[in-house]
């Protein structure tokens, strides 16, 4: 169970400047009030356009930096109070998910499993289990050097799930995946959500509407650093008064663009 309660975060960025003109510092409000309540046994979609603050929110969830305001709880553990405890309860596939090219997929997975406190044997057994789930048996003992985008993504996902976490956080996991890989990923996530797969709490960020429509029971629409709407897909359609999800999303995310009467 993940509770993100109206978190905010600002960064200072620099303008270009030139040789004679100093770069000016600007404050960028990346996130200013995002709330996500993700229950167990449910896939929660974080839907928003590029730059809406999804990745920043998830990075705060991962404890990479502290939010300026708001609170983040994972299974009742405050991330900024006990980050290590919270991390042990999460499997995170972040924005960056580089592998170690000279290690095999299995070794990559075992390394993270051991850092999660598992024994090497248990981690290896778990790697095989995950390779069946993610259909990556053929690459399990190959070095990560020559992996395709999809193979890399699968390995990174297996690495994030090695300790069988109760909460799974995925940041745009389908980026760069082809149809088949996306489909098998979707299947895997459905399995993990089901009671047979452990009724995981899955948080999934994306900017692709079809994915949300097909996969998520609960959707949080994020735009300009705020969570602007949430609910199931039918609820959101009703809220926006639209019949197509895409129209509903645009209306909810960019209210100033979709004035009534315009096509």
């Amino acid at each position: 169970m993940i509770h993100i309660d109206s978190v905010s975060k600002h960064f200072t960025a620099r303008t270009g400047g030139s040789l004679f003109k100093r770069a000016v510092k600007q404050t960028v409000h990346a996130v200013q009030g995002v709330s996500v309540h993700a229950a167990s046994g449910r896939i929660t979609g974080l839907l928003g356009p590029n730059g809406a603050g999804k990745t920043t929110t998830l990075r705060m969830l991962a404890g990479l930096f502290k939010p300026d305001g708001g609170s983040i709880m994972v299974d009742g553990i405050a991330v900024d109070q006990a980050p290590l405890k919270a991390l042990a309860r999460m499997g995170i596939l972040g924005d960056a998910h580089g592998l170690y090219p000279r290690l095999s997929a299995r070794e990559n997975i075992i390394y993270f499993g051991r850092l999660q406190g598992m024994e090497a044997d248990a981690a290896s057994a778990r790697a095989e289990e995950l390779s069946r789930l993610l259909d990556m048996g053929s690459i399990l003992d190959r070095r990560a050097e020559g992996f395709s985008q999809g193979e890399r993504m699968k390995t990174a996902l297996a690495r994030a799930l090695v300790h069988d976490p109760a909460n799974i956080v995925l940041d745009e996991p389908t980026n760069g995946l082809d149809v088949l890989a996306t489909r098998s990923l979707r299947e895997a996530l459905r399995h993990l959500r089901s009671p047979a797969g452990g009724s995981k709490c899955i948080v999934f960020s994306t900017h692709i509407m079809q994915e949300v429509e097909q996969l998520c029971e609960h959707v949080v629409v994020v735009a300009q650093g705020r969570s602007v709407a949430q609910g199931t897909v039918p609820e959101l359609l009703e809220q926006a008064g639209e019949s197509k999800f895409e129209d509903a999303f645009v209306k909810l995310a960019f209210p100033h663009l979709s004035n009534p009467g315009a096509v």
Binding site: A62, G63, L64, P83, L84, K85, L87, A88, M90, I92, L93, G94, D95, A96, H97, G98, L99, Y100, P101, F112, L115, Q116, G117, A156, R159, A160
Partner: peptide, 17 residues
């Protein structure tokens, strides 16, 4: 190198000091 590969961030997401 770890930063360049993008493996530092996942590494820090493990519950390790």
């Amino acid at each position: 190198g770890e930063r360049e590969r993008g493996s530092l961030e996942p590494l820090l997401m493990n519950p390790v000091q």
